[in-house]
Nucleic acid binder design. Structure first.
Lengths: 196, 196
DNA sequence: ATCAAAACATACTAATTAGTATGTTTTTGA
DNA sequence: TCAAAAACATACTAATTAGTATGTTTTGAT
């Protein structure tokens, strides 16, 4: 990789971590410069302004990461109800990068930036729609293969699952550890069981 | 009411609205002064600093409002599954003060202030615990009265319901209207039906 | 090797922010 | 009524912020 590209990527990655922990508005450019050891001149060479960097984070960091975590596990054949549960369990319990006290990066950004920042709103909307359609597809597939009852509304179930995830990620910020996650997952299992 | 008390209350109410719409950090004290027509001297006579005002908003505006919206409807006897659905329907569809594009005040504040602001975290935790315990109580009552299956775990269901609400309030910020709310409510009804 | 463009570095600016200092006016209790 | 306290008003400060102006250094193609 070219050196300049490496600089740009460092900025995106470190800024993403800072924003995940502190929030977008409260992460200053000086914060980012301090942790990356990049100078202001370099920063503004790579990005027109802070928002352009923020959008690059969504499109070049968040989107691929989510595609890997949320989309890939559902492309397999097999019982989508099982895959959905395992995906959630992995995200909430196993994933070492997502800490309960900091919530979910995409959910945090959505809460902070919508509806005022139109560009962020649109980018985040694409992100969630991508996840939504994948879940719906997996559930429809599950209906065809007999894993899911035929009267189940895939879009409704998807919204229930996604809402539950974002919600428990936010509720979980209030307690010390993963208690809320554990309780949520147990009930998610019951709910998913009721769909076949 | 004393004039001074009225000034204080005006600040709390208008600031609450501004914070709901714009967020806590991005609502400046000058914003609040401009919309309330209160001067800086008056503001700092009533509040030591911005955070003290924020905490007063939680304890004196949010808490009573939530007690009215979330707690009261569940104190009745009768089928808690029905009451929960109607509460959600009322909050998401009927309530004229809560706009999809601005989400849920308590959820927004939780996302923005935790874990860094300890005082806010604690106040918001009390708020949600209050709601949680009320929901659990209503469900346990429903079990005793035969409205809810006995093998249902009230705390788990409560977490599912609360997570779903906060989650869909955040997801809903991304679309124009209440489509997500409608879909969520339909599936919530199915889910609640599976509990009796 | 050279030179132009790319990449980076440093010092500055203008706006915004929470909070303070120091007043004046209004209310209240004896 | 009248003084003291409560309530409010205004001007200021110091820090932080995103962004700019103006450089120097590095890179890569010829």
């Amino acid at each position: 990789m070219k050196k300049a590209e490496a600089t740009r990527l460092t900025i995106l990655q470190k800024a993403f971590e800072l924003i995940y922990v502190k929030g977008y508005q409260t992460t200053s450019i000086d914060d980012i410069l301090a942790t990356t050891q990049v100078t202001k001149g370099a920063f503004y060479y790579h990005f027109k302004n802070k928002d352009e960097m923020g959008l690059a984070i969504i499109n070049e960091i968040l989107k691929p990461t989510m595609a890997e975590s949320f989309i890939a596990p559902l492309q397999n054949q097999g019982n989508p109800l099982v895959f959905i549960y395992e995906m959630m369990n992995h995200l909430l319990i196993d994933n070492p990068y997502l800490k309960p006290e900091f919530g979910c990066p995409a959910s945090n950004l959505t809460q902070e930036m919508t509806p005022w920042n139109v560009d962020f709103s649109q980018a985040l909307n694409e992100l969630t729609k991508q996840w939504e359609e994948t879940l719906i597809g997996a559930l429809e597939n599950g209906k065809l293969n007999g894993f899911v009852r035929n009267d189940v509304n895939a879009r409704q179930v998807t919204l229930m699952v996604m809402s539950g995830y974002w919600g428990v990620r936010n509720l979980g910020k209030l307690d010390q550890g993963k208690e809320s996650y554990v309780l949520y997952l147990k009930e998610l299992k019951n709910y998913l069981k009721s769909l076949n």
